[in-house]
Amino acid sequence: MKKYKIGYRTFKTAVGATIAIALASYFNLQFAASAAILTILCIQPTKRKSVHAVYTRIVASLVGMAFVFLFFENLGYYPIVLGIMLLLFIPTLVSLNVIAGFISSVVIIMHLYAEANFTAELLLNELALMAIGFGTALAVNMYMGDFQKELDRSIDQLEEIYRSIFSEIVKYLRNGDTSWDGKEIIEAANLLNKAKSLAFKDVENHLTRKENEYYLYFDMREKQLEIIERVLPKITTLPVMVEQAELVADFMEDLAEHVHSGNTARTFRDKLEIVKEEFAKMPLPETHDKFVAMASLYQFIEEMDEYLIIKQSFRGIKKKGKKKAITDAT
């Protein structure tokens, strides 16, 4: 049995439905309970989706009332007329790209069909129900939770995982330790999926914002993770240990200690150039295995340069309560 939980959306649905039906009853509207239905149909997980939901339902309902007048007032209030009307009404909503408002429009249509008399008074009643139902949904949906603390926490967790991955690489290069099971790679991938989803939801909660710095950050880290996954088999299956392994280990240890705000990616790219220069000064390999090991290590540092380029191109964000921007992180 799943844990019983009342979420944001559930709470807003209950509050919105209560307010809508109370207002409709206060103004003595016919079908007052339908105001609650209209509100419930518009409750959405984000502000942007809420605005779009209200838009589609208003348009669909207005088009529906126009169809009712054209069909029922001219052909009569009969089931067959309702069926013919729906055959044309649904494709119309699809062409207008407001099919999401179909159910809400049917609520209005069935009110008019039940009364079998399209009067100005009934029309005003339905417009009032729409104003209360959709307006209430829009009002309660304007309050959304703040995801910034959770996003900051995801950043901290992800950077800790990256530090752990780099530390495991260092242990292998220095000691030949092959006990690592690579679980951090899976943890990083799962965390990135959740964090990007949350960051996208944060974008949807800002009506004028088209992109989210947190989303760009996690997207950047995801690209870096792809590089890490690609090079790990090369660096952890060296046929022999060569002198250059210690150089790479020193660099990775330094990088592991600075996966946070405080050191720029440019700084580490400069350090990587020094590693390359040291590589060039070392003697050529004497055996095939040493040649393969050196080639793998050199390919590894080239990939790590790409890892840093990806970070360097990120413009950065400012974490809540932090003085330094994440743009300084590696």
Rank of each mutant, 00 (worst) to 15 (best):
K3C: 01
Y4Q: 11
K5Y: 13
K5M: 07
I6S: 10
G7E: 13
R9W: 12
T10M: 09
I19Q: 08
A22W: 11
A22D: 08
L23M: 12
A24E: 06
Y26H: 09
L29N: 05
Q30R: 14
F31E: 07
A33K: 11
S34Y: 02
A35F: 07
A35L: 04
I37E: 01
T39C: 04
T39Q: 02
I40Q: 08
C42K: 00
Q44A: 05
K47H: 11
K47A: 05
R48N: 15
S50A: 14
S50L: 04
A53K: 00
V54W: 00
Y55P: 01
T56N: 05
R57T: 02
I58L: 15
V59H: 09
V59I: 15
S61F: 03
L62A: 09
A66K: 09
A66H: 07
F67Y: 08
V68F: 01
V68H: 00
F72C: 00
E73R: 02
I80Y: 04
V81E: 03
V81G: 00
G83F: 08
L88T: 12
L93R: 00
V94C: 12
S95H: 11
N97D: 15
F102M: 11
S105Q: 06
V106W: 02
L112N: 02
A114C: 03
A120S: 07
A120W: 06
E121H: 06
L123V: 07
L123W: 06
E126G: 03
E126T: 06
M130Q: 02
G133L: 01
G135N: 03
T136Q: 01
A137K: 04
D146N: 15
Q148M: 09
Q148E: 15
R153Q: 14
I155E: 01
I155W: 01
E159Y: 15
E160F: 13
S167G: 14
V170H: 01
L173M: 12
D177G: 13
S179I: 11
W180D: 07
G182S: 14
K183T: 15
E184V: 12
N190F: 07
L191W: 13
L192N: 03
N193I: 14
K196Q: 13
A199L: 08
H206A: 11
Y214F: 15
L216H: 06
L216V: 03
R221D: 04
E226G: 14
E226M: 12
L232W: 09
P233S: 12
M241T: 10
Q244L: 05
L247W: 13
L247V: 09
L247N: 14
A249T: 08
M252G: 03
E257Q: 14
V259E: 05
T267L: 14
K271G: 12
V275E: 08
E277W: 07
P285R: 06
E286S: 12
D289H: 13
D289C: 05
V292I: 14
A293Q: 05
Y298E: 06
Q299I: 04
E302A: 06
E306S: 09
Y307A: 03
L308D: 02
K311P: 01
S313T: 11
F314Q: 03
A325K: 09
A325S: 15
T327I: 10
A329G: 07
